[in-house]
Design a protein around this nucleic acid. Structure first.
Length: 747
RNA sequence: GGGCGGUUAGCUCAGUUGGUAGAGCAUCUCAUUGACGUUGAGAGGGUCAGAGGUUCAAGUCCUCUACCGCCCACCA
């Protein structure tokens, strides 16, 4: 039997098919210019003097493809953006990618080594950079396509890259100003050296894994008066002193005595010193001081003017005179020294203790503390801030970077959600030490420091120590520092480097500080703190008013998704299978800020059903309202419909309040229920009776109510499920309607 | 060693300012070829981790305990 429903578009006769509409709609939004606030104003969709909402996209690393975490981030930020746009704000959401220095270079190096067996020095700086850039470009293109697939309403006309020319200019300016203010300096001291990546890394890039270690108690030699204890016997060939507490009665008498010892084939000279840092109750109450390979010992050495004796090289191998140890890997050397101690009958005790192993975040290499000449950002050095609009920090006052970072959050200029992370942030600031920003890799912003050459016969690269900060060579006889900057140095500038800084652009004036920063809580220190540092210092203002942290996306059983476990759900696969709207809903419903969320294919499937439900709700509404058009001035509602409108208004008020509080997990669920349980299951059912046996006035009233309520559902749902709502919107019998993306949020 | 989060129906989680427990999925029963089976109606299922306290009243506030998870920390 043929089924005719002439008043509704034929597409509603079959189930909702996301594939057919998603790409088409995204392109239309883009072509119409609705992602760009200037275009919105030009087209009259936004008022020129409307309030501003701005946000930067945390730039994905150009190391590969998007994962579920990115999909979550894009969804939340797109909800914020679409909501504010519909509320009439001049809304800007800026896209971009991050060159991710070490992460990208080590990934490409890994591929080259696997395929060609070559290492970076076999290939050379220029060729490696060419290959990394090529990889980054391909990665970028795929990331951009995937981002569009999620429906992200980003203003692509303002797209940025942390390593492009404009950002390079910002990086130079930032470096120069900080150098001139004495906040960037070069110094020889202990760094975290990653032997695998062959570079320094910052304190934040260390990952501690819990394990056990051996704690050895021994004497350097039979006639040495004091026993010491250590977990790293191999470093003891670099010892220059034994430190004891100055008031320790056991050892006081030895202070300032000196000994020459042959230790495992190495001649060492030990002075006994008194230092307050030593805890008499721990171990033997005496510390073997190895200044070159321990930060604590380095500081003791500085206080007592002790020499520095490096014994481990950049490859984590011993570099000593001892034939027994020279050239051996650190782990081998440890065994050799222990064996030697046993043979010499010097080992007194061997205990197993819990111990943290520091590894490099990106390469997994075991980090060695080594002394190196590096560039640093001084966080505790006082300077005069010229201009500040930070609450509690006056222009012209003397502050430290740490003060600024603390003030931005403590003053409330930046609010962190959920607020428990404010404490985490404060605590981190308290422990913060100077930030090592130079990296011995090639992919990144090369440090704009030039050294004056003074070649000698031994060393044609000998420099005088004179330094110039310059974009280009200061002239003949200067060489540029070969190192590059920590990737977080450039991403720290992101909120304003994307808006044209260091130039005083309209964008910078209009959109900075940004309204919200939305990101994962795992980069609170790496990125959020560094952005606050850079913005407060360079612009005298906080970079964003609100920080909203989302959690980690986990698999259905709560474990982290990882390729090795094979439990990765690819967001794009899911979009293809169930539609982007379903993926977005599944990531949002029931996931509060800062909480990790579990996702599963079942959950995504459930929301595909929801998209289809909306589709069929529309089919019913359109077919039962026939040729009715929504009348904006209609007010002859029946008693029953007036009640329903009151309920609808209360509902709108409720969810609008929750949107303002970022409670998307609640709003999405509530609209879902309103649409399904209230509107479809109850209201549509009783409408059937009205249409069958009501008066004309009741029918007319109900038709208007159904149309207006469906419009309300589509509008409020649009930030969450932009595609299905926009697609339905095109068929709504409403005169002079705009695209849903720029329709007014109903209140 | 510090700090933080979690512990509510079989599973995943809500529960706003304290007023005798909610949703989705799952399970079971029933219905229905007129919007939708990607459906509808209904049912079962929880001493809200444990103990103590405040209160007329506590998942909800306070204290302690247990387990799970995370973050921070240069004790050699």
């Amino acid at each position: 039997m043929e089924h005719k429903e002439p008043n509704i578009p034929a597409k509603f006769l079959s189930p909702y098919n996301p594939e057919e509409v998603e790409q088409k709609l995204y392109e239309t939004w883009f072509k119409e210019g609705y992602f760009n606030p200037d275009e919105c104003i030009r087209k009259g969709a936004t008022k020129a003097d409307a309030p501003v909402f701005s946000m930067v996209l945390p730039p994905p690393n150009v190391t590969g493809t998007l994962h579920m975490g990115h999909a979550l981030m894009l969804t939340i930020e797109d909800i914020m953006t679409r909501y504010k746009r519909m509320c009439g704000f001049r809304t800007l959401w800026i896209p971009g990618t991050d060159h991710a220095a070490i992460a990208t270079q080590s990934k490409v190096e890994g591929i080259i080594y696997k395929e060609e067996g070559k290492r970076r020095h076999d290939i050379g700086r220029e060729e490696l950079l060419r290959r990394v850039n090529e990889f980054a470009q391909a990665s970028h293109d795929s990331i951009v396509n995937q981002t569009k697939r999620i429906g992200a309403s980003l203003d692509w006309s303002r797209e940025a890259y942390t390593l492009d020319e404009k950002r390079h200019e910002a990086v130079f300016e930032a470096f120069k100003r900080m150098y001139d203010d004495g906040l960037i300096y070069r110094k020889y001291r202990i760094v975290n050296w990653d032997p695998k990546g062959q570079t320094t890394i910052s304190d934040d890039e260390l990952i501690y894994t819990e394990g056990t270690g051996k704690f050895y108690t021994f004497k350097y030699s039979k006639d040495f008066p004091i026993s010491i204890a250590t977990t790293r016997p191999e470093t003891k060939v670099g010892d220059v002193a034994v430190a004891v507490h100055p008031n320790d009665e056991r050892y006081q008498k030895y202070i300032n005595t000196e000994y020459d010892i042959d230790f495992a084939g190495e001649k060492i000279h030990i002075k006994i010193v008194g230092d307050e840092a030593v805890d008499p109750a721990f171990g033997t109450g005496a510390v073997g001081v190895t200044p070159a390979h321990s930060t604590v010992d380095w500081e003791i050495a500085e206080r007592h003017n002790l020499p520095i004796v490096p014994v481990i090289n950049e490859y984590a191998k011993m570099s000593v005179k001892s034939e027994l140890l020279n050239g051996k890997k650190v782990s081998e050397a440890r065994e050799l020294v222990v064996t030697w101690l046993k043979e010499q009958n010097l080992l007194e005790k061997e205990e197993t203790i819990p111990q943290n192993l520091a590894t490099a975040e990106r390469t997994g290499g075991v980090v060695e503390p080594l002394p190196k000449l590096q560039w640093w950002v001084a966080v505790n050095k006082p300077f005069v801030i010229k201009e500040s609009t930070i609450t509690g920090v006056k222009s012209g006052s003397t502050v430290t970077l740490k003060d600024l970072m603390r003030a931005a959050v403590a003053s409330g200029d930046t609010e962190i959600l959920p607020d428990r992370f404010e404490k985490v942030y404060e605590h981190w600031i308290g422990n913060l030490r100077d930030w090592c920003i130079s990296r011995q890799i090639w992919f990144g912003h090369q440090i704009p420091a030039w050294y004056k050459l003074e070649p000698t016969t031994d060393n044609p690269q000998q420099t005088t120590g004179e330094i110039r900060i310059s974009k280009t060579s200061p002239g003949e006889g200067w060489i540029q520092d070969e190192d590059t900057l920590d990737t977080w140095f450039s991403s720290g500038l992101w909120t304003f480097s994307t808006l044209g800084w260091p130039h005083a652009t309209d964008d910078l004036r209009t959109y900075h500080p940004t309204s919200v920063l939305e990101t994962g809580y795992d980069i609170i220190f790496f990125w959020v703190a560094r952005m606050i540092l850079m913005s407060t210092y360079l612009l005298g203002t906080t970079p964003f008013e609100t920080v909203y942290f989302h959690g980690i996306v986990r698999s259905a059983d709560g474990s982290k998704m990882s390729k090795s476990k094979g439990n990765v759900i690819d967001p794009l696969d899911m979009c293809n299978k169930y539609g982007t709207d379903a993926v977005r809903m599944s990531l949002i419903v029931g996931t509060g800020p800062g909480n990790d969320i579990r996702t599963s294919e079942d959950k995504i499937r459930a929301y595909k059903n929801f998209a289809n439900k909306l589709w069929n709700i529309t089919r019913f509404v359109l077919s039962s309202t026939e040729n009715e058009t929504l009348e904006s001035t209609f007010d002859a509602y029946s008693t029953k419909d007036t009640e329903l409108i009151a309920r609808r208004d209360a509902f709108l008020k409720e969810i609008t309040g929750e949107m303002e509080e970022f409670k998307y997990y609640l709003v999405s669920e509530k609209i879902y229920h309103y649409a399904w349980t209230e509107f479809a299951d109850v209201i549509l059912e009783e409408s059937k009776t009205i249409f069958a046996s009501g008066t004309d006035a009741e029918k007319k009233s109900r038709k208007q109510f159904l149309l207006s309520t469906l419009a309300v559902i589509l509008k409020t749902l649009h930030p969450f499920t932009p595609f299905v709502t926009e697609e339905i919107w095109t068929s709504m019998p409403i005169e002079n309607k705009k695209m849903l993306i720029v329709e007014k949020w109903p209140v």
